[in-house]
Amino acid sequence: MNTLVIYTHPNHKSLSYAFLQEVIRGSKENGKIKEIKVLDLYEEGFDPVLVFNEHKRRRDMHSDPALAKYREQLIWADQIVLVYPIWWGRPPAMLMGYIDQMFASGFAYKDKGGLLPEGLLKGKSVVCVSSMKGPAHYPLLWLNNSHKALMRKALFNYVGIRKVKFFEFGSMESPRGKHAKKLQQVYRYFKTVSA
């Protein structure tokens, strides 16, 4: 199994970075994970801004040469892992900009003229590891589970990815946030995950 980890946080001293290290550590100890690649969007200098004009058209985004290496990474990956904080009830703008550009028509899905498209990324799995300041049940009780609905239904199911797992950790700025326990939980998962 090839694992692509997409890390989205500007600070390498953050809790998100600590979660990234546990994803990597667990994956390296998992005999079923053949290779792991990490894409740090901030360190990469990924440009999340969409530009459409007479030279760049939205319908051509699936073949934009500037995005070729990122498309190759997604094709290569059997498992896609997203590590990010939840800000304002959703992933950071940097990650959303990546999603806007990478999960384009003609690459991630194909319109068939009906209600739903054909997902072109079938057979892959996704794990979202996210943390937030608010309590763990905040997205469910106050936001109607919008974060998970956005990621699972509006994005991954749409492009054919059915296996989506969430680690959505709340109260992470509290000294009672049980950081060590949650970091260990992520490590154990990636040490044993098989697909």
Score class of each variant (00 low, 15 high):
42 Y>W: 13
44 E>D: 15
46 F>K: 07
47 D>G: 05
48 P>C: 08
48 P>N: 08
49 V>Q: 08
52 F>G: 00
52 F>L: 10
54 E>S: 14
54 E>N: 12
55 H>T: 13
55 H>S: 14
55 H>F: 13
55 H>A: 10
55 H>C: 02
57 R>C: 01
57 R>L: 14
59 R>S: 14
60 D>M: 09
61 M>D: 13
62 H>W: 15
62 H>E: 11
63 S>W: 00
65 P>S: 06
65 P>E: 08
66 A>H: 05
68 A>K: 15
70 Y>I: 02
73 Q>W: 12
73 Q>Y: 13
74 L>E: 05
77 A>H: 07
77 A>S: 12
78 D>Q: 15
79 Q>A: 10
79 Q>D: 12
79 Q>R: 15
79 Q>W: 00
80 I>E: 02
82 L>E: 00
83 V>I: 11
84 Y>H: 15
85 P>C: 07
85 P>Q: 10
86 I>S: 01
90 R>K: 11
91 P>D: 05
94 M>P: 01
95 L>D: 10
97 G>W: 05
98 Y>H: 03
99 I>S: 01
102 M>I: 13
103 F>E: 09
103 F>L: 15
104 A>L: 06
105 S>V: 03
105 S>G: 07
106 G>Y: 09
106 G>K: 01
110 K>V: 04
112 K>V: 13
112 K>C: 10
113 G>R: 11
116 L>T: 11
117 P>F: 03
117 P>N: 08
117 P>Y: 07
121 L>T: 07
122 K>F: 03
122 K>I: 01
123 G>K: 05
123 G>S: 05
124 K>I: 03
124 K>Y: 03
127 V>L: 02
128 C>P: 00
129 V>D: 10
129 V>Q: 09
129 V>I: 15
130 S>T: 13
130 S>F: 05
133 K>G: 15
133 K>N: 09
135 P>V: 08
136 A>H: 04
136 A>M: 01
138 Y>C: 03
138 Y>H: 12
139 P>F: 06
139 P>S: 05
141 L>P: 00
142 W>I: 07
143 L>P: 00
143 L>I: 02
